[in-house]
Amino acid sequence: MRRITAILCATALAGLFAAGCNSDKKTYSDAEYIMFADTLSTNMVFPDGAYFSIPVASTVACDYDRTFAVEVIDQGSNAIEGYHYRLKSNTITIPAGERTANVEVAGIYDHIQDTDSLGFKLHLLVPDQVHWTGLYAGSDYTKVVFYKGCDYDLDAFDGWCVVTSLLLYDYPSALDQNYQRLILTEKHPTEPNTIILHDFLYDGYDVTMRLTNDDPMEPVIEMDEDQVLSDEQTVFGQINADNKILGTVSPYYDSYYNTCQKYASIWLYVYLKDLGTMVGTVGHYYNVLEWVSLEEAVRLKIENNMSGARDPRDDPDYPRNNQGNADRE
């Protein structure tokens, strides 16, 4: 069913546009067009119930208010109005002297699953004389995508973690040919917002990552430069520089984390130096980190023989019952 959430008042709009805009306000070659500012809007929904904004723009300012209706297009949408989200209003008004307004949308947090990526399409109902065609045809439509955001919680990234690494796929350790590892992570005792990744990619080499929380919409991961990932001999079978494989986050690809789903996506820039001088680039490698419970970590270790320097059955919280002892044997 195609549901219309607003009805355009044709009579009122006809009178509105008959008057036209004050010529003193015009700034775009005397042409007036109304459109969505972008054809795609991606948004995060938090428990506070706050609205997020979908901007609408006009090429000129007028000396009177301009009101337009908005409709939801159900076709191609996987979000249900009234269940996953609601509009604050089915109309928007560009105030006199202004050129922008916003469609306000609230996501219904409790009805959005952690792994949901929901979307729907909006249509801005404007008269033909302010509808932009040609290069900007379709600008009266926009796709709205939203997903669940969780409050910043460093504890979510403290514990057992499965690492899947393209660096390990291309350069496995001479002692371990697996491109997946089970590692233990913990909050840094002195550095804020920082997680220690023990034995991150190769045994015996810990690295750190910082989870920024300045902007909930940009949960970015940062890493110090020149972190030692391994020695060259273990990985390459030979020494090309100072016997250290170094890494940090790639400057070309985003590294980010998701608190709801307890995972991190890290693009590593891997390189070699000799006495502080750059020798060469190994490459840019994608890594996925997924945090799991102690029980899941034990299962992965036993059933999948997951590699890693640490065994989750050595965790102090692992139950020391008969079953646990049997697993260890």
Rank of each mutant, 00 (worst) to 15 (best):
Y64W: 09
N322D: 07
E32F: 10
V249A: 00
L40H: 12
Q238F: 15
D128K: 04
N304P: 06
T11R: 02
Y285T: 01
A14C: 08
R181Q: 03
D206T: 02
D214T: 10
I34V: 05
L289R: 05
Y318V: 11
L87P: 00
G280P: 15
C21V: 12
M217S: 14
Y205I: 05
Y152V: 04
N213V: 04
L272I: 07
P319L: 07
I302W: 07
P47D: 04
L211T: 04
I73E: 15
A12M: 07
A6V: 06
A79F: 03
A10T: 02
Y28A: 10
N322P: 15
L272S: 10
I195C: 01
E290P: 04
G134H: 09
R210Q: 14
F236M: 08
G237V: 05
Q177R: 08
V145M: 09
S165D: 12
A14W: 02
D274A: 12
K273W: 14
D242M: 11
W160I: 00
T67Q: 15
V144M: 11
L125C: 02
M223C: 03
H84Y: 07
L124M: 00
C161M: 05
P316T: 14
P319T: 07
Y64R: 09
S165I: 10
D110V: 05
V144Y: 03
G159S: 04
T91N: 13
Q261R: 12
S53L: 13
T42F: 14
V249L: 01
D116R: 00
G15M: 01
T248E: 14
Q233M: 12
Q227D: 00
Q113N: 08
V163C: 03
A241I: 03
P312W: 03
A61Y: 07
R3W: 15
V279S: 12
V288T: 10
S29R: 08
T277E: 15
R66C: 06
T27P: 09
G237M: 08
Y109H: 01
T185V: 01
T67K: 13
T91A: 08
D24V: 15
E104D: 04
F120G: 00
R313N: 03
K143P: 14
P319R: 09
N258C: 08
K262G: 08
P47E: 08
K244Y: 13
K26N: 12
L118N: 01
